[in-house]
Simulated assay, not measured.
Amino acid sequence: MLSFEEKLAIIEEFEELEKKEISLGRVNFHYEESLYDKKIVVYRLHPNGNGFVYAGQIEDYPVDDRGMVNIKDFSADELRELIRDAIDSLSLSPAEKDPIMEEWLNEHDQALVLMREDDGYNVYAEEQLEGTFNSYEEAANFLEQEGFSRL
């Protein structure tokens, strides 16, 4: 297990994080450039070496109900990778994290394009916007009801 000082040194390698001292010798590290309301990347790093890193926007990490991963037993490389992934996850919009661009055709060979943009899904006929939807399912439903199927 890395010591508090070793973890602190690794976290401080990330210049985009801002250190905030809290009670009982613990520290948080904030990412002020976050595109989301979530700004705390490292939460309650304690002098005993325990602490958490936000991974709520990252797949394949076991998170608690707040989206946090306990870093008590992380190696230096694991900690660096998790922090980099956390910062990246807060730096990219949903469309950048999971881009979608699909062409849908009907029986008359007319094409519509379904794209993920910002926080929603848009359907285009060439350059003209045909519809905006909150979820992929809503957009796909619309296309299917209009007689289109995905290629």
Rank of each mutant, 00 (worst) to 15 (best):
L2E: 09
S3D: 08
F4G: 06
E5V: 03
E5R: 06
K7G: 12
L8W: 03
E12V: 01
E12T: 02
F14K: 09
E15D: 09
L17T: 10
E18I: 02
K20D: 08
E21M: 06
E21T: 11
I22M: 00
I22K: 04
V27W: 00
F29H: 04
D37K: 08
K38T: 11
V41S: 06
A55I: 01
A55N: 00
D60K: 10
P62K: 07
V63Q: 05
D64W: 08
I71P: 11
D73T: 13
E81S: 15
I83L: 07
I83T: 02
R84F: 09
R84D: 14
R84Q: 14
I87K: 12
P94M: 04
E96G: 13
K97R: 15
K97T: 04
E102D: 12
L105D: 11
L105H: 10
D109G: 01
A111C: 10
L114S: 01
M115P: 01
M115C: 08
R116M: 09
R116Y: 03
R116S: 11
E117S: 07
N122K: 15
Y124D: 13
Y124V: 07
A125M: 07
Q128P: 00
G131Y: 03
T132V: 10
N134V: 02
S135P: 04
E137W: 01
N141Q: 13
E144F: 06
Q145P: 06
G147S: 14
F148N: 07
F148E: 06
S149W: 03
S149V: 05
R150A: 08
L151E: 14
